[in-house]
Design a protein around this nucleic acid. Structure first.
Length: 110
DNA sequence: GTGGTGACGACAC
DNA sequence: GGTGTCGCCACCA
């Protein structure tokens, strides 16, 4: 699924994240084969917002299930969106992260 | 062209 | 187990 840019791949994966599920930067990076460059995923997501793309970036958390990107997404907005999908956010952390974790490498079966 | 920075992750101490 | 450091690669000053 290697598109033109790493950026495009990140967007494509995030957009495929089912509602009620979340994934991590590292998972996406690993799925794209650049697991060591998890920072690039965050960079791509940041661009996705700047591009006004309809990307559910609020479903992308860090490896700890923390809403690290909430500051860039809109503090309350990111948590509210997740809660709207049935998630439980406490102290900026997804309580059932392991339960709702969506691994592209497994779900998309690369 | 160089240096610093960043929505992270893994490892070392 | 918390903190520190490095790595990773692209972008901005």
């Amino acid at each position: 699924m290697t598109n033109e840019n790493f950026f495009e791949n990140v967007i494509a994966v995030v957009k495929q994240v089912p509602k009620g599920r979340v994934t991590s930067y590292g998972a996406i990076a690993a799925y794209l084969g650049v697991k060591s460059s998890s920072r690039m995923v965050g960079w791509a997501l940041h661009n996705s917002i700047s591009s006004k793309s309809k990307v559910p970036a609020h479903r992308v958390l860090n490896r700890n299930g923390l809403l690290t990107g909430k500051a860039h997404f809109g503090n309350d907005r990111m948590q509210k969106l997740l809660e709207a999908e049935g998630h439980i956010i406490e102290n900026d952390e997804l309580q059932n992260f392991m339960k709702v974790f969506w691994d592209p490498s497994k779900e998309l079966a690369l």
